[in-house]
Design a protein around this nucleic acid. Sequence first.
DNA 1: ATACTAAACGGACTATGGTCCGCTTTCTAT
DNA 2: ATAGAAAGCGGACCATAGTCCGTTTAGTAT
Lengths: 192, 192
Amino acid sequence: MPLGAPHERSDAARNRERLLSAARDLVAEFGAEALTMDALACKAHVGKGTVFRRFGSRAGLMMTLLSDSESEFQYGFMFGPPPLGPGAAAKERLIAFGEGRIYFVLENGELLKAAGAATRNRFDVPATKLSHRHMEVLLREAGIADPWVMAMSLTYALDPERIVDDVRVRGISPTRLTDSWRELITRLLPAA
Amino acid sequence: MPLGAPHERSDAARNRERLLSAARDLVAEFGAEALTMDALACKAHVGKGTVFRRFGSRAGLMMTLLSDSESEFQYGFMFGPPPLGPGAAAKERLIAFGEGRIYFVLENGELLKAAGAATRNRFDVPATKLSHRHMEVLLREAGIADPWVMAMSLTYALDPERIVDDVRVRGISPTRLTDSWRELITRLLPAA
DNA sequence: ATACTAAACGGACTATGGTCCGCTTTCTAT
DNA sequence: ATAGAAAGCGGACCATAGTCCGTTTAGTAT
């Protein structure tokens, strides 16, 4: 909760816990795809309006559910050891970032797809902004002319829907994805 | 209509015309985003079931609406003059393809976004498959190790939602997009 | 303790994509 | 012309995300 928030009312806190717990149960049992807001409200013994006030939307709920694992990955590329974290060359860090991202998506794919779908402006997701900014900085360091736009191209190349569907629908192995990502970054940033 | 189709009944043909005409009117007047299937059925004086039998889904309708301009673009990169069409080097053709695609998306953005949204497996869209295949062939010709996967990365980099939002929401000029695409392909395929 | 206020609550309501199925129309074979 | 079959039709119906607003409740000031 943001600083300066006046005080969270006790009933609000209680309902938030109920909702998160019920949501985790439902996702564990039936998968994120199958979670409906009505079912969640019902299972948490809470009104539907409460669900939406708390999370804003289905996508917001999914992002909340993701935030722990997401924070962990973010910590990894911002403060962790090289080659993912600081200390390695931009090229190595980008390769490691893409590989990490691909495995992260494959672990949390359902949640990520659900968080991205039905969100206008997927880019408004804070985690997406942070990833984009990270790649932008590395690309600038590596001498790319328009790092902002290039980072956007790479962001979409790592789109959760793309990764999940490649692997689960089109039968591409994760290794092929990471190998191809490595080839992409290697050719994009040859000077090392 | 595909060969071997037994015969299109006259009432079916009449309703198809009515629907297409009504759909074009609605898109022209209110934009593709705002088109609802109920409104379309009503305006065409046709039942809702008829709309869905004809087009399958909202996305299917949008694809039908797109098919003329899409065919034109497809013709351009398959049979048209170089550098877009055959006769130029793979690298030049890829650069031209991306540029053409970016402008095509900016002209038909609403329809394309509407066609892609709400479609599971965006990749099932035939036009997308064709574009992917085209890039795959060019990438193989240029010596990319896994052209299928790389073509998928580039497909997502040219995602309609991405292009439209970059330009219309995030204020990036089309020129920056095409310049960055050129940089991407140039670095990706240096041997020319 | 009481009264007051702002926040939270809940569930009926709306919007919209998509499905279902009994009825109608067109075509064809006789 | 007639009858039968297959295709087409329409709109009631369903599922689900998201909104609205009158009611309840937790904190606070007296």
